[in-house]
Design a protein around this nucleic acid. Structure first.
Length: 533
RNA sequence: UGGGGUAUAGCCAAGUGGUAAGGCACCGGUUUUUGGUAUCGGCAUCCCAGGUUCAACUCCUGGUACCCCAGCCA
């Protein structure tokens, strides 16, 4: 159990175990029945980093004991996600590799009189189990003799018994206060194709009967899992004790609380529902907290791992403020990506004191103080600026009639007039440029406003996808996705999909993994700047 | 309701008898050609009530709130 600092706690335990020559070994054991999400990242991270700190190893084992739900496609997807995360998992194991051993151990328990074949139906078993208020009572088949138990178990194994007709149960204690110990199911009959073992098995072991023994087999020393398995721990230990003799080799189950992030969705069932209703586009929808979704959105592996680190490992229920997630990605991207300009709501600004074909090339650094090279920006008579930067209310930071503002990396301009369409929508802005203000201030003029811009002549169309949280006040947010045609600098033809950039004064964006190409500049908003236009 | 857990600021989270770390968020100052970044400062007496002690977030007693367990899921 985690009492205080888990590293201290495990260090001591690890030291204790090292007396018996055991390394510290953990494992990540996903069930191959869906995509990995942020919660899994936490689990992988906890297992890996603990192993790293304590000079051990972390393995991966697919918990594939339920062929009805599991599928090969998830193996590939899980492995790809972990690879992308960049966390090293040693050995790839499968619980299904141990089906033979498990079967033998089940037989062993039967022979010792510690397991029996039960003919009760699902509803009868449920009824016999009792509930929180009442104890359970013994199945009439509980005292079936060992010989018959072996006979029927083998019959089940050979596929001679129909699904649901018989089941193998551990003979523990129907009066136990821990309901998990009221003769739990060890094997059930499932006669369907398994993606690894094919049609060989007609019976499959339960999670409880599989997990501990698999850990033991692999030499796992610490089986770290989430809090919902707390009461299963006693069962985990029971199987170990009744199958193996060497106490000092028993793996130890330790629980910690799962990571919950506000306004995020990780439930497989709910995600599926949203996909079916066409509310989101798939498992890698950038609004999702699945690894593939976050990757597509533009989150970095570092930011995800850092999020795990700064949220800690405890046993208390948590609901982490999504700002921590935002902080993790912003701080990672801050000094790692280039900064360019993109105008999201373009409005034309005409600088009337320039000649029609005025053109000047301005060299601009790609990052203010990290060496990331430089690029050329073209300065012409007609430029695009953002409509949001035009503000009639004499805002200190924005452009309004008669006011000066600086064009980022270039000159100070003044707004002279604006032209409206008939419907009162603004059509264009006219202004003048102070050609003596490049890289310096005009005398006596203190400027607060700096706005971004792109030359009309030298620009490219860009598709911007903007996101809000998927949930809003715990219900699905109808305004979680927008897309807008925008205008950016010409350098986008040189970047690859999944490249991350900062659009100055707006936020961090990522060239879409699938939709971005040399002729179609599609960007996903990763995260806005802390205050943005 | 039985059993198993958890309670420290708006959100995470250190802390194991010597007088409440840190991060996020928020608020304010400085720097700044991004309302960004950086930087400086502000921001809790520890679920409640008793008790033990020179001294309690830490120990004891009694409460309260929330989470997990009654799948042939994991």
């Amino acid at each position: 159990m985690i009492k205080k600092n888990i590293i201290d706690y495990l260090s001591k335990d690890s030291k204790f175990r090292s007396l018996f020559k055991k390394n510290f070994i953990t494992r990540f054991s996903p069930e191959p029945n869906g995509c990995l999400h942020l919660g899994h990242v936490k689990s992988i991270w906890v297992n890996c980093s603990l192993a790293k700190v304590l000079n051990g190893n972390c393995y991966i084992r697919f918990d594939d004991t339920n062929p009805i739900k599991e599928n090969k496609i998830y193996i590939t997807s899980v492995l790809e996600d972990i690879h992308w995360l960049g966390l090293k998992l040693k050995n790839i194991n499968y619980a299904s590799n141990y089906f033979n051993k498990l079967f033998e151990w089940a037989l062993l328990l039967i022979k010792q009189g510690k397991a029996y074949i039960d003919d009760l139906s699902i509803s009868e078993i449920k009824q016999y189990r009792g509930d929180f208020k009442s104890v359970g009572y013994n199945s009439p088949y509980r005292k079936r003799n060992i010989k018959d138990n072996i006979f029927f178990f083998k019959k089940m194994y050979k596929g001679f018994v129909k699904e649901g007709k018989k089941v193998l149960r551990a003979k523990i204690d129907m009066n136990s206060k821990n309901i998990n110990l009221r003769d739990p199911i060890m094997y059930r009959i499932i006669n369907v194709y398994h993606y690894r073992t094919g049609n060989y098995w007609k019976i499959y072991p339960s999670y409880d009967f599989t997990h501990g023994q698999s850990d033991m087999l692999e030499g796992i020393t610490h089986s770290i899992c989430t809090l919902e398995f707390e009461t299963n721990r006693y069962l985990y230990q029971w199987f170990l004790k009744n199958i193996f003799n060497d106490y000092f080799k028993y793996p130890k189950q330790i629980e910690f609380s799962r990571m919950n992030i506000s306004f995020s969705l990780t439930s497989k069932r709910k995600i599926k529902l949203l996909i079916d209703k066409n509310f989101i586009f798939g498992w890698d929808d950038p609004r999702l907290s699945t690894i593939s979704g976050m990757r597509r959105r533009g989150y970095t592996p570092t930011s995800l791992k850092n999020l795990c680190k700064i949220t800690g490992i405890t046993r208390s229920n948590n609901n982490i403020d999504i700002h921590l997630q935002y902080y993790a990605i912003r701080s990672d991207l801050e000094n790692k990506v280039i900064r360019v300009m993109c105008v999201i709501n373009p409005i034309k600004l005409i600088l009337t004191n320039l000649i029609v074909d005025y053109e000047e090339i301005i060299t601009v650094k790609n990052h203010p103080f990290i060496e990331m090279g430089a690029r050329s920006m073209y300065f012409n008579r007609e430029i695009w600026i953002d409509l949001k930067d035009f503000n009639n209310k004499q805002n200190l930071f924005r452009l309004s009639k008669g006011k000066n503002v600086r064009l980022r990396h270039s000159y100070i301009i003044k707004c002279k007039k604006f032209v409206f369409f008939k419907n009162e929508q603004i059509k264009e802005i006219q202004g003048i440029v102070y050609l003596n203000s490049k890289h310096k201030n005009l005398e006596g003029k203190i400027l607060k406003g700096v706005i971004h811009w792109v030359s009309v002549k030298h620009s490219v169309p860009v598709l911007i996808r903007l996101y809000n949280t998927l949930l809003h006040k715990n219900i699905v947010n109808n305004n979680s996705f927008f897309f807008t045609d925008s205008i950016g600098e010409p350098i986008f033809s040189h970047i690859k999909p999944e490249t991350r950039v900062q659009f100055e004064r707006i936020g961090f964006f990522c060239a879409d993994r699938y939709d971005f190409n040399k002729t179609n500049f599609v960007f996903n908003e990763i995260i806005s700047l802390k205050t943005f236009i």
